[in-house]
Simulated scan of single mutants.
Amino acid sequence: MNLETHIHSARLLRSWDIPDSARQVCCIAMREDLALLSSFIEERPQNKVRLLLVPDLPAGGPEYVRFSGRGGVAAIPIRGLQDVEKAANLEKVILCRPGAPGAAATAMLCRCLAACGVRGVYLYSGQERGFGVQRPLPDFYDQHAAKLQKVYDLLADDAGREAYAGRIKALMTGEAGYLPLSAHQEYYHPLVRPEHGDIMLDGGVSDMVGVQMQFAQSVGETGRIFGFEPMPDMAAIAKKQLESFPQYHLQTAGLGESSGQARFTCLRDSSRIAASSDDENTVLCQMTTIDDFAQKHHLGRVHCIKLDVEGAEMLALAGGRKTILKHHPKLIICLYHTPSHLFDIPLFIHELVPSYTMYVAHSSCLFTDTILYAHS
């Protein structure tokens, strides 16, 4: 299958448009989202709820839940997710809060359902669109077809090609529901991940360091991680939280194409290089390159590089040419900050080291978290 055919055949796996023809439905929700069930029943009487699945249903919980609505009193069987086979002939509707918390819970539920053989679901949040929607780029494939096809041909497995085609379809339609969710965790592809004893460069930290703690546990006491966070306030908070991991060494600096200084704009939970130096809401930050840092700190080996640097991934890779050529480290690079990165980053890596094997995977119900994994 070529890429264009794959894009056109991509399925909408998570849709906000619940059809009136879905007469018999199974609603799926975490306990904290069960309040949405009553509004769903009230708003959509044409979609009769025949079963409710609650993954975190406590042992000894109720067997039925009752709701009063326009159609009278409804007694709906309530079961755990292990009984999903009872919904084999019902359309699946996930009840989810809007925004990032709802997206995270939905991703978890979708993975559980996929493990049971269920891929396509509908979503309901009480709003028209709860998350995973953005301005479409309908001409994206036509404008970049040759480069996109070249990357597609470089990908090593069917799962990566499906994720890549799904990403393009999502960009063209503005619907993140076309993106298939990986079975593995973000940054942890089965073949490309931080491992015990690795020396790792971690580009992009912020002050939310749960992932960094996991990286530290993965490399263990014999490994070392050098993290890079340009914003001084965020770096100070992150350093404090990482004190119990002596193998993690956080640098108050960003990664770029050259060492020196650059202005950064502070975002809600991260930062990015400022679009204009005239912007008053910026902070002057220190910058280094992968190559300069590796040379200065006499890194005899670099096993893994992860880059999630808010759109500066190409600059950071350009500043790491020598290190990548010398060590052929595992690469974990975010592709989602800029549409052109979907082809620019893989082609840059392939031209630099043609022996790299590449995979693509996506791990959220949002447009974020599409990642390129590469090893040589």
Rank of each mutant, 00 (worst) to 15 (best):
L53I: 10
A274P: 15
S364I: 11
Y359M: 03
A318V: 05
F245H: 03
A159Y: 01
I290F: 01
M200E: 13
A238L: 07
G177T: 02
A145R: 12
L13Q: 03
R97M: 14
T368N: 14
M108R: 15
K326L: 07
L372G: 15
K322T: 12
P346S: 09
K169T: 11
D157C: 07
S15T: 08
Y373D: 06
G99A: 12
L57C: 06
A75D: 14
D233I: 02
L366N: 08
G203F: 03
G254A: 05
Q149A: 12
A87I: 07
L34A: 08
A88L: 07
D153R: 08
W16T: 12
G99T: 15
H328A: 11
H297W: 14
D291S: 12
G130V: 07
M314S: 13
R50S: 11
D56C: 04
G160D: 07
F131L: 11
L267Q: 08
A114H: 11
A104T: 08
C266R: 07
E162V: 02
H350N: 14
L325M: 10
I333E: 05
H362E: 14
I305P: 07
I324H: 01
R70F: 13
G227C: 12
C96L: 03
D344Q: 14
Q143G: 10
I237T: 06
F245Q: 01
K326W: 01
V219T: 09
D20C: 08
P77Q: 04
S271N: 15
I237S: 07
K239E: 07
P98M: 03
L123Y: 05
G61Y: 02
L52Q: 08
Q241G: 09
M208N: 13
G210D: 15
P62F: 01
T252H: 00
S258L: 12
F226A: 11
Q217M: 12
V211W: 06
A176N: 04
D233V: 06
K169Y: 05
E221W: 02
D308G: 12
L36P: 04
G197K: 00
R111E: 14
S68H: 08
G72Y: 00
P19Q: 12
A312S: 13
P62V: 05
G102E: 04
K322A: 13
R301N: 14
E42V: 10
A35N: 08
I305Y: 11
P77E: 09
F245I: 00
V151R: 01
F67N: 10
A236H: 02
L137Q: 09
G61M: 05
D142K: 15
A107L: 00
A170W: 03
S15K: 02
A35C: 06
T368V: 14
C285Q: 02
A176K: 03
D33L: 06
V93A: 09
Y359H: 09
A216L: 04
V309H: 06
S363R: 10
I7W: 02
D158Q: 09
G260Y: 00
S276W: 01
Q241P: 06
E85C: 14
L307K: 12
V353A: 05
S259I: 03
S276G: 09
H8Y: 08
K240I: 04
